[in-house]
Amino acid sequence: MSATSGAGVGTVQSVHRAVRVLEVLAHEGECGVTQVAAELGVHKSTAFRLLAALEAGDLVEQSAERGKYRLGVGILRLAGATTARLDVVQEARPLARELARQLEETVNIAVLHDGAALYLDQLAGASVLPSHNWVGQRIPLHATSNGKVLLSGLSAEQIRQVVGGRLRAYTPTTVTNVRQLLKEVEQVRVDGYAVVVDELEVGLTAVAAPLHNAHGDVIASLSVSGPSFRFDPGSIDVAVDRLVATAQEVSSRLGWRDRTA
């Protein structure tokens, strides 16, 4: 085994042990170094290093009784981020289901995650052709309507950082120039929605609109997608109207108020 691979194994082991520390504290409430070491089956010095690393990230904290550790406020921050996503899905799903029924196409909910659009939920319409299940998958931001809507919540500099310098061409119509992408994202901000035809896959059309929180931030994207042959200009207009209305209703349920209306 090489030194590099050995270090990798050690890192993974440390991660597993750190997770185990959090589980122990969640179960016990408060623990000292000795108890944590016993629970993990490691030396006290190892347990102390793990607790110190977690404390530096606010994931654990020392209680008033020094030497005792408990879960820290960092856990609440992480849990809050997860709860926010669950809130979006919970509020959006009934309306998204109705939208899918009306348009007889697939409706997706996506969020920005690690430089991509992460699909959280999907509601299938009654179309003849079954749709690919995107839930849990990450797709490129520059080649999708959801992605462009999510980018519309960022500044130009943030967009450049997120997408990088080279944009992959998935089809002949994929936008591969960052400057052109910035122009399209700006148009999304003006229009309040994005339309993408054949950019991720030839034959796939999608329209998307932003979901806002109470502060007006773009926290997610709601989209309708299906085969391009079913999306003529008239169908796209209908889809956009109903999609935008649905997205605004979901945003309203999340506390957003459209001050431009």
Rank of each mutant, 00 (worst) to 15 (best):
N213I: 08
S221V: 14
Q137S: 13
G192W: 01
Q158H: 04
V188R: 08
L182C: 06
R168A: 13
A208Q: 05
G203T: 14
N213A: 04
V218H: 07
T144K: 03
D191Q: 13
P130R: 10
I139C: 05
L167D: 06
D217S: 12
L150T: 04
D121C: 10
A208G: 09
N146V: 13
A206Q: 10
P130V: 12
T205K: 00
W134T: 06
S127H: 15
D121P: 07
R189D: 01
P130G: 09
Q137G: 08
V224P: 08
L151W: 03
T171F: 07
L211Q: 03
H132V: 15
R179Q: 10
R166Q: 13
R179Y: 00
N213K: 04
A194H: 00
Q137H: 12
Q180N: 05
A206V: 07
G165P: 00
R179I: 10
N146L: 12
P140V: 10
S152F: 02
L211T: 05
Q187Y: 00
G164R: 02
S131E: 14
G216W: 03
L141Y: 06
V202A: 02
E201K: 01
E186I: 01
E201Y: 05
H132R: 14
T173K: 08
I159G: 00
S152A: 11
V196H: 00
T144S: 11
T205M: 05
R160A: 05
E157N: 09
L141C: 10
Q180E: 13
I159T: 10
R168T: 14
P210M: 02
L167N: 05
V128I: 15
P130S: 10
G153P: 08
A156T: 12
L151R: 08
L129Y: 15
Q180H: 08
H212C: 04
T171R: 07
P130K: 12
A209S: 11
G125D: 14
V207M: 03
V149Y: 06
N213P: 07
K148D: 04
W134C: 08
L129I: 15
Q137K: 12
P130W: 14
A156P: 04
L150V: 08
I219T: 12
T174V: 08
A206Y: 06
V196D: 09
V207F: 04
L129D: 13
V185K: 09
L167Y: 06
V185Q: 09
A124D: 15
G153M: 07
I159F: 02
V196P: 00
A124R: 15
H212M: 10
T171Y: 06
L129M: 15
Q180C: 01
